[in-house]
């Protein structure tokens, strides 16, 4: 093995750690700490296609690089769309970028939500907080290919009404055919919010779907997974039909740096989307 691989000419190996230059085309302030950036590739080369579930490594000049999911699917040459929440120094630097400013992009990396496996089925999307961003492309795709899927249920939990993303789009989803939208918040005053207060799994208990023919896609804080799985079980949804997106520290995004290991998996390469049974026992291990 070593002798054959080592004789490959090193000059033919593309440097996978080198970003390409992109420019902010549009910046939408979603909430106090979250923005959606639309990014256009600088120069002649075409942007790579990004599928729902995948992520790019976004590089803020001189500050650092972080993995950010695509919040819209894009074809080859189309602008990339990322929703970024300011939680650390790099994400804060990215969230400060204004139209016309540049950043580096590597990607896309990771696998995709297995939506194609659920054609003709009901689709349940459960998002917590910023977890709606990686799931928005799933909802959009179902709505674009409306006839290919059954009932669509979107359940979304946020900390506070002021932290809800994509407000206008949520209203469009609510008005879409054969679609149920449930939004709940953890805390509120009674003046600003007339909707449900409580946790997302409660919405699942009341949602309409056919458990045998449903794909459930879940992205949110890891703490949310078990309560949602528990409700799914109560509704007799087979757990092989539950797909979760996981997160760990990530430096290289190509399975070389070691940081994102989760048991046998490299989340960057084998994930970020996993069928729940594949990670169920790992999720029970603390500090894994």
């Amino acid at each position: 093995m070593s002798s054959t691989t080592a004789t490959n000419s090193p000059t033919t190996v593309r440097e996978p750690m080198l970003p390409s230059t992109y420019r902010v085309l549009r910046r939408e302030q979603e909430t106090a700490d979250t923005v959606t950036l639309t990014l256009e590739r600088d120069g002649e080369a075409l942007a790579a296609a990004c599928e729902p579930g995948q992520f790019n490594m976004l590089y803020a000049f001189g500050v650092g690089e972080v993995p950010i999911s695509v919040s819209a699917a894009s074809d080859v040459g189309e602008p990339l769309v990322h929703t970024i929440r300011s939680v650390g120094k790099t994400s804060a630097a990215l969230a400060r970028l204004k139209p016309g400013q540049s950043l580096g992009v590597r990607g896309p990396f990771g696998n995709v939500w297995p939506l194609d496996d659920y054609e003709g089925h009901d689709i349940v999307v459960i998002a917590g907080g910023i977890g709606l961003a990686p799931l928005r492309p799933v909802v959009r795709r179902v709505l674009e290919r409306r006839a290919s899927f059954g009932h669509l249920v979107v359940l979304y939990g946020a900390r506070h009404p002021s932290e809800l993303l994509y407000l206008e789009e949520l209203e469009r989803w609510r008005a879409s055919p054969d679609t149920t939208l449930g939004i709940t918040v953890d805390r509120t005053t009674g003046v600003e919010w007339m909707g449900p207060v409580g946790i997302v799994p409660r919405l699942l208990a009341r949602a309409r779907f056919d458990p045998i023919e449903t794909g459930l896609f879940l992205c949110g804080p890891e703490v949310m997974i078990e309560p949602c799985v528990r409700e799914a079980l109560t509704r007799k949804l087979p757990l092989e039909q539950v797909h979760v997106s996981l997160e760990r520290n990530m430096h290289c995004a190509i399975g070389l740096c070691g940081h994102c290991q989760f048991g046998p998996h490299f989340i960057c390469r084998d994930g970020p989307v996993f069928a729940y049974p594949d990670v169920e026992s790992l999720l029970r291990v603390r500090e894994l």
């Binding site: 700490d33 300011s86 939680v87 650390g88 910023i130 939990g157 900390r159 804080p221 703490v223």
Partner: peptide, 8 residues
């Protein structure tokens, strides 16, 4: 637990 509040 305030699980959505996850900044540094």
């Amino acid at each position: 637990l305030d699980v959505f509040h996850d900044g540094d």
